[in-house]
Each structure stands twice: as structure tokens, then as C-alpha cells.
């Protein structure tokens, strides 16, 4: 056996379980998240700091543990989110593609089923998402954006907490592949 070809993991056998989802869930949950993101902040402005499409991207990527499906899911969700806005399509698409790829790659290597891991992974990928978004918006589209560490960290913690709760609710839709 070639030691370099064996993936080194730090998880138990159960944790490398790959999940899949039914077609209605695959389409309906992201659409619901995008609708929620577009509708709720008008009534409750505080909700604008949450990025529900991002949380859903991370969840699906971690559950499927397949980088290709993870990045494609992120790309699709991000592009749809872009289409609702006035700016060029692709800003959220690129950021969520990176997050989808990263979360699914990490999901196949680490135990991401417990609450603590989910909290940290969500916080980390929220910051990655914001960094990618900032780079594309500022560097390519020349939008006037300011980076605020304090704001993004606090928003990241808030998203991580909400995401952890959301993931446990979405766990019921998992089907073993």
C-alpha cells in the first residue's frame, strides 16, 4: 500500500459518511434561503447581517463532501443571489464558489458533525467569503467597499451561531449516499 495515496483523516469511520439530498430539497432549500434573504431584512433590518445563502452553501458542501458538487452548488447559489441585485452577476458567485469548494474539501477531512466544529468552520468560511467578495467587488467591479475587521468578525460570529442551529434543522433532510 502506498502511504501517500491513503487520505489522512482525523475522523472516525462514521464521520466520512457522505450524504445526499432529494431533488426538492436541493432546489427548494437554497431558493428559500435566497427568498428569506431578500424579504426579511426589509421588515427586520438587523437580519441583513446574516447571509442565509452562504450558510446553506456551507451546509450542503460539508454534507456532500465532494469538492466538485460543493463548488457547483456555491456557484449556482451565488449567481442566483447576484441576479437579484443591481450589480454585475458574478460577485457572489465567485465568493460562494470558493466557499463551496473549501467547505466540501474540509468536510471530507475533518469531523464537521458536532456543534463546535460547525461553529468554527462557519466562522472561518464567512470570513473567507467576505474576503473573496471584497477582492472581487473592489478589484474587478470597482465598487466602493470598506473592510471593517470588527464588523466582519462580529457578523461572522452571528452567522456561525445561527448557522449551527440551522444545520441541525437541515440535518433531517440528509440521506445516506
Amino acid at each position: 500500500m502506498n502511504p501517500t495515496s491513503v487520505p489522512i483523516t482525523y475522523t472516525s469511520g462514521e464521520q466520512i459518511e457522505v450524504y445526499r439530498f432529494s431533488f426538492p430539497v436541493t432546489i427548494g432549500v437554497p431558493l428559500l434561503a435566497i427568498f428569506f434573504q431578500a424579504f426579511v431584512p426589509r421588515r427586520l433590518p438587523f437580519f441583513s447581517i446574516f447571509d442565509f445563502p452562504l450558510l446553506v452553501t456551507i451546509f450542503f458542501a460539508m454534507a456532500r463532501r465532494n469538492p466538485i458538487t460543493g463548488l457547483l452548488t456555491g456557484a449556482a447559489i451565488g449567481l442566483v443571489q447576484d441576479m437579484l441585485g443591481p450589480y454585475p452577476i458574478g460577485i457572489y458567485g465567485i465568493a460562494k464558489t470558493v466557499v463551496g469548494y473549501g467547505a466540501s474539501s474540509l468536510g471530507s477531512k475533518l469531523d464537521v458533525e458536532n456543534a463546535g466544529a460547525r461553529l468554527l468552520v462557519t466562522l472561518g468560511f464567512y470570513l473567507v467569503h467576505q474576503a473573496a467578495f471584497f477582492a472581487v467587488a473592489r478589484g474587478m467591479v470597482n465598487l466602493n467597499m470598506n473592510w471593517s475587521w470588527s464588523h466582519d468578525l462580529l457578523a461572522g460570529v452571528a452567522n456561525a451561531m445561527v448557522g449551527t442551529v440551522l444545520y441541525f434543522a437541515l440535518d433531517r433532510f440528509k440521506q445516506r449516499a
Binding site: G85, P86, Y87
Partner: peptide, 15 residues
């Protein structure tokens, strides 16, 4: 009537 927004913190727009 306003029925929604763009869903993004970056843009200020309404539907």
C-alpha cells in the same frame, strides 16, 4: 408596494 430587496448588504435596492 415594496415587495422585497436585493438581499445583499452591498446594494441598496428595492423590488
Amino acid at each position: 408596494q415594496v415587495i422585497g430587496s436585493s438581499g445583499s448588504d452591498l446594494s441598496r435596492s428595492l423590488y
